[in-house]
Deep mutational scan, measured.
Amino acid sequence: EPELVFKVRVRTKDGRELEIEVSAEDLEKLLEALPDIEEVEIEEVEP
């Protein structure tokens, strides 16, 4: 069974934007590691 992958769009407080694809596990780590995120948009990517 393929692992869930999420497309994550992040905007930081200083206005930088970042778009990455991460696994569910990595997404959890990412959110814990970035306390200064202003906006996060997450969508599931079809395998």
Rank of each mutant, 00 (worst) to 15 (best):
K7E: 00
D36C: 10
V5N: 06
E21P: 03
K7I: 09
E19W: 15
E1M: 12
F6M: 04
K7V: 06
E44H: 09
L4E: 03
L31I: 05
V5S: 08
K29L: 07
V22Y: 02
E3H: 10
E21F: 15
L18Y: 15
E43G: 07
I20V: 07
L31E: 01
E44W: 12
R11F: 05
G15R: 02
L34E: 03
A33S: 14
E44A: 13
V22L: 08
R9E: 00
I42Y: 06
E1L: 12
E25G: 11
P2T: 07
E39M: 14
L34S: 05
E43I: 15
E38F: 13
E3K: 14
A33K: 06
T12A: 04
V8K: 01
R16T: 07
I42E: 02
T12K: 03
L18T: 04
E46C: 12
V45W: 09
F6C: 05
P2H: 09
D14C: 06
I37W: 13
A33D: 07
P35R: 15
V10K: 00
P35A: 14
R9A: 00
T12I: 05
E28H: 12
E3I: 10
E17R: 11
D36T: 04
L4C: 13
P35S: 14
V5I: 12
E44G: 09
K29Q: 06
E46G: 11
D26E: 10
V10S: 00
L4R: 14
V8G: 01
E43Y: 14
V45P: 05
E3R: 13
E39H: 12
E43D: 05
K13E: 03
I20C: 11
V8Y: 03
E3Q: 11
D14K: 04
E21T: 14
E46M: 12
D14F: 07
L31G: 01
E17Q: 11
A33G: 09
K29V: 04
V22S: 02
T12P: 00
E43H: 11
E44L: 15
E46K: 13
I20M: 10
R9N: 01
E1T: 11
L18V: 07
L34H: 06
I20R: 03
E44C: 14
A24W: 13
E32W: 15
E46D: 10
K7S: 01
E1N: 13
L4M: 08
A24H: 06
D26Q: 11
L18F: 15
V5H: 09
A33H: 08
P2M: 07
L27K: 01
E19L: 14
R11Y: 05
L30E: 01
L31C: 11
E17I: 15
E41L: 13
L18Q: 04
V10T: 01
E1F: 13
D14L: 05
R16M: 07
V10D: 00
P47M: 11
E32L: 14
E1Q: 13
E43P: 03
D36F: 08
A24R: 12
I20G: 01
E43A: 08
I37N: 06
L4T: 08
S23N: 10
V22M: 07
E39R: 12
K13V: 05
V22A: 04
S23K: 10
R16I: 07
G15S: 01
D14R: 04
L30Q: 01
E28G: 09
R9C: 09
E3C: 15
D26F: 09
V40P: 02
V22W: 02
R11K: 08
E41V: 12
E1W: 12
L4I: 10
E32N: 12
E25Y: 15
E39I: 15
S23P: 05
E19S: 10
D36G: 07
T12V: 04
R11S: 02
S23E: 03
L31V: 03
A24V: 07
V45H: 07
E28S: 10
E1D: 12
L34T: 05
K7P: 02
E25C: 10
L34Y: 11
V10R: 01
V10H: 01
E43V: 13
E32V: 07
L18W: 15
E43R: 11
E43Q: 10
E17T: 15
E39W: 15
A24F: 10
T12Y: 15
P47S: 09
K29S: 06
V22D: 00
E28W: 15
V40W: 13
V45A: 07
V5G: 03
L4G: 04
V45C: 08
P2G: 10
I37T: 06
K13L: 08
V10P: 00
E32Q: 12
I37R: 05
V40H: 03
R11T: 06
V8T: 01
L27Q: 00
D14I: 02
L27P: 00
V45R: 07
E32M: 13
A33L: 11
E21Y: 15
I42G: 02
L31D: 01
A24C: 10
E38Q: 08
D14A: 04
S23C: 07
R11M: 05
E46F: 12
K13Y: 04
R16D: 04
V8S: 00
A33W: 13
E38N: 05
L31S: 02
V10A: 03
P2W: 09
P35C: 14
E44Y: 11
K13T: 06
E39T: 13
P2Y: 10
P35T: 14
P35Q: 14
R11Q: 03
R16C: 13
E1R: 14
L27A: 01
V40G: 02
K13H: 05
L34N: 07
K29C: 08
D26R: 06
I42L: 05
P2C: 13
L31W: 08
E3F: 10
E19P: 00
K13C: 14
D36H: 06
L4V: 09
R11W: 06
E17M: 14
E19K: 09
D26P: 01
S23F: 07
E38R: 06
E39V: 15
I37C: 12
L31T: 02
E17L: 15
E44R: 13
E38K: 05
P47G: 09
V8I: 08
A33C: 14
E28R: 14
E3V: 10
I20T: 03
V5F: 11
E3D: 09
A24Y: 09
E28P: 08
G15M: 02
D14V: 02
E44T: 10
A33E: 09
F6Y: 10
E19N: 10
P2A: 09
E32F: 14
A24N: 04
V45L: 11
L18I: 12
E3P: 11
L18N: 01
E19A: 06
V22P: 00
E25K: 13
A33Q: 09
V45F: 08
E25H: 12
E46I: 13
L31Q: 02
L30C: 06
R11H: 04
I42R: 03
D36S: 05
